[in-house]
Computed example of a mutant assay.
Amino acid sequence: MTTTVPLAETHAPPPSVQEQPPWSAEELEERLRTLATANYHDHHPFNQRMHRGDLSRDEMRTWVANRFYYQCNIPIKDAFILAKLGTLAHRRSWIRRIQDHDGASDTSSGASPSDSGIERWLRLGEAVGLARHELSDHRRLLPGVRLAVDSYVTFCRDRSTLEAVASSLTELCAPSIMLTRLETFPVHYPWIAAEGLSYFRGRVPQGRRDGSEALTWVKEWAVTRDRQELALAALSFKCDVLWSLLDSVQNAGTLRYRPRATLRGTP
């Protein structure tokens, strides 16, 4: 015998799902810090080999050259975030990040172009034996690194302000990995000139400042469970970006590189 289901029942909406109560600001912070610590790329086998002193010179150069593409795109993603910020105070604060990497023409307001993050990374490249033009034209760039970095820029362009800012919370872990490199590079890689390590020194105070600031904003903005979970998902995504970048570098092997003159930001 066939049972006929009334039409109204076939289109009845599912029972409403009761919204979960939000975590306290303290619990949200603990969850964000735990996620970042557990998933940060200092656990990646390539970084662990680096810090043990196991990288060859060519492996170090491959990492420096590919990470430079990420460095070049940091101020671009920060410009997208800057455009989303709705208050003067937030914009004034966030613009420092762009100046940290690109430099500032007004040297009284931040890093000068001669002492910017990108300039310091170019000096690291020279210290490991790479000419500036080898970095600037991205001739050693691996496809997987380009995809990972571009996906991060797109994320910051297209997602909400909360998600874009939360994705930057890997800064909470950055000072630790920079200090590790300052400790281990002189011991394991004495062939790298000391002046090439200035990028790592500069990022210790910047990372502490930027991580603390972004965390304060995320806790202020993420006041419902769904927004808190968006923040956690954004941070998880950023950890995946950094991990994927190293996956590509680790698997580079003996690949031959070709110039990529059409990449964004190249002359």
Results as ranks from 00 to 15, higher is better:
residue 3 T to A: 00
residue 3 T to W: 00
residue 4 T to I: 13
residue 4 T to P: 12
residue 5 V to H: 10
residue 5 V to G: 00
residue 9 E to K: 10
residue 10 T to Q: 09
residue 10 T to D: 05
residue 11 H to C: 08
residue 12 A to P: 06
residue 14 P to L: 13
residue 16 S to Y: 14
residue 20 Q to R: 12
residue 20 Q to K: 12
residue 22 P to F: 07
residue 22 P to H: 08
residue 24 S to I: 04
residue 24 S to P: 08
residue 29 E to P: 06
residue 29 E to V: 03
residue 34 T to G: 13
residue 35 L to D: 03
residue 36 A to W: 10
residue 36 A to E: 10
residue 38 A to T: 14
residue 38 A to R: 15
residue 39 N to W: 14
residue 40 Y to G: 05
residue 42 D to A: 15
residue 46 F to H: 03
residue 46 F to G: 02
residue 47 N to G: 07
residue 49 R to T: 05
residue 51 H to F: 14
residue 51 H to V: 13
residue 52 R to K: 12
residue 54 D to Q: 13
residue 55 L to R: 05
residue 56 S to I: 01
residue 57 R to I: 14
residue 63 W to K: 02
residue 64 V to Q: 03
residue 65 A to T: 03
residue 66 N to H: 05
residue 67 R to L: 00
residue 71 Q to E: 11
residue 71 Q to W: 05
residue 73 N to V: 03
residue 73 N to Q: 09
residue 75 P to L: 03
residue 76 I to K: 12
residue 78 D to C: 07
residue 79 A to Y: 07
residue 79 A to K: 08
residue 84 K to I: 02
residue 85 L to M: 04
residue 85 L to Y: 01
residue 86 G to R: 14
residue 86 G to V: 05
residue 87 T to Y: 05
residue 90 H to K: 15
residue 91 R to Q: 12
residue 100 D to F: 13
residue 101 H to K: 13
residue 108 S to G: 06
residue 109 S to N: 11
residue 113 P to M: 07
residue 115 D to K: 10
residue 117 G to Y: 07
residue 118 I to K: 15
residue 120 R to E: 11
residue 122 L to V: 11
residue 122 L to W: 06
residue 123 R to G: 06
residue 128 V to G: 02
residue 129 G to D: 00
residue 130 L to S: 04
residue 131 A to Y: 03
residue 135 L to F: 02
residue 137 D to K: 01
residue 139 R to Q: 11
residue 144 G to Y: 07
residue 145 V to Q: 04
residue 145 V to C: 01
residue 149 V to I: 05
residue 149 V to R: 02
residue 152 Y to I: 00
residue 153 V to K: 00
residue 158 D to Q: 15
residue 161 T to M: 10
residue 166 A to P: 04
residue 167 S to K: 06
residue 168 S to E: 14
residue 169 L to H: 00
residue 173 C to Q: 14
residue 174 A to W: 15
residue 178 M to D: 13
residue 180 T to E: 11
residue 180 T to A: 09
residue 183 E to Y: 15
residue 183 E to P: 07
residue 184 T to L: 06
residue 188 H to P: 09
residue 189 Y to I: 09
residue 191 W to R: 05
residue 198 S to E: 15
residue 200 F to D: 02
residue 200 F to W: 12
residue 200 F to E: 07
residue 201 R to N: 09
residue 201 R to L: 13
residue 205 P to I: 08
residue 206 Q to S: 13
residue 207 G to W: 08
residue 207 G to F: 06
residue 208 R to A: 00
residue 211 G to C: 04
residue 211 G to P: 00
residue 212 S to Y: 11
residue 214 A to E: 04
residue 214 A to T: 02
residue 217 W to S: 09
residue 218 V to I: 01
residue 218 V to R: 02
residue 219 K to Y: 00
residue 220 E to V: 07
residue 221 W to T: 08
residue 223 V to Q: 09
residue 224 T to D: 03
residue 225 R to I: 03
residue 227 R to M: 06
residue 228 Q to V: 01
residue 230 L to A: 12
residue 230 L to G: 07
residue 231 A to Q: 05
residue 232 L to A: 01
residue 234 A to W: 09
residue 236 S to A: 15
residue 237 F to K: 09
residue 237 F to A: 01
residue 239 C to T: 14
residue 239 C to E: 11
residue 240 D to E: 12
residue 242 L to N: 15
residue 243 W to S: 12
residue 246 L to W: 11
residue 251 N to A: 14
residue 253 G to H: 11
residue 253 G to Q: 08
residue 254 T to D: 00
residue 257 Y to D: 14
residue 260 R to W: 07
residue 261 A to R: 10
residue 265 G to N: 04
